[in-house]
Amino acid sequence: MGKPKIACYWAASCGGCDVSVLDIGSKLADIVEQVEIVFWPIALDFKYKDVEAMPDQSIDICLFNGGIRNEENEHMAKLLRRKSKILIAYGACAYLGGILGLANLATLKELFSRVYRETPSTVNPENTVPQPTVKVKEGELKLSPLLEYLKPLNEVVEVDYYIPGCPPVGEKAWEALIALIKGEKPPKGTVLTADERTVCDSCPRVKEEKKIKELKRIYQVIPDPEKCFLEQGIICMGPATRGGCDAQCIKAGLPCKGCFGPAPNVEDQGARMLSALASIVEVNSEEEAKRFAESVADPAGTFYLFSLPSSMLKRRVK
């Protein structure tokens, strides 16, 4: 039969998900004995043509991290889908679009303009921007063209399972993987390693009454280490974020940012958080309601930090 074949690929990714795979430390040595890694760009020197040469469905499990930002990402997603029995969207970017998905609030034209022309420290008098091809004396160099908007993996191919997190919790991801290797078959589309309830359920902080008068940025106060962040006026995405991470960030003294994505019943994480937050502010007049709205510096960036491309609107509408 042979050892199970595992592939890992990074699309539009920061590399953190691959690092999380290494997070299990010394256990990695044992696991590597039991599986055959056939493709892993960050660590091993397999080429695309090696993947193309594999028979269809010959990869047992493929961990695909990163969002679909350019044509190369899209091509690899489709290729790996063909070649894999089980395709897992690994990490927030592949599952929901991730932080890179915030680029969807701009058009491609605006992105290029900002990055290569407008940022304060850019000096680019010739207006040089990256091109899809450029001729050099050795031949032609190609850069994969960007798609108009970033997409999560499931908008491009069918995904079997999701492992959330930015990055996922290494230990839990490996447990899930081993279960799959052993032959467990959760229903297609299951979000593995995640709770059915939100982060509040595993948060150690004390909750009293969800009523706030105003918001505070985390640098503006010295937060009480025992009390719920939200009850102190500090935005914490915990109530609207799926649990399973064991509230690591909160235990480290920081409010949740929402990387595990929405609760099981919820399609749009950002809208639910917006509603919950606006509902618990004590407001006695229309003026106060306006002022509260103004006090949230960047609503989309806060509420959709990881989930914009998989939200209801997905991207800039106009």
């Binding site: 909750k207 915990g238 919950a276 509902s279 618990i280």
Partner: peptide, 15 residues
């Protein structure tokens, strides 16, 4: 309340 999904955040109680 759908107990299986309730994490006890307290938003509903407050409002």
């Amino acid at each position: 309340v759908l107990e299986d999904y309730c994490s006890g955040c307290g938003v509903c109680e407050a409002i």
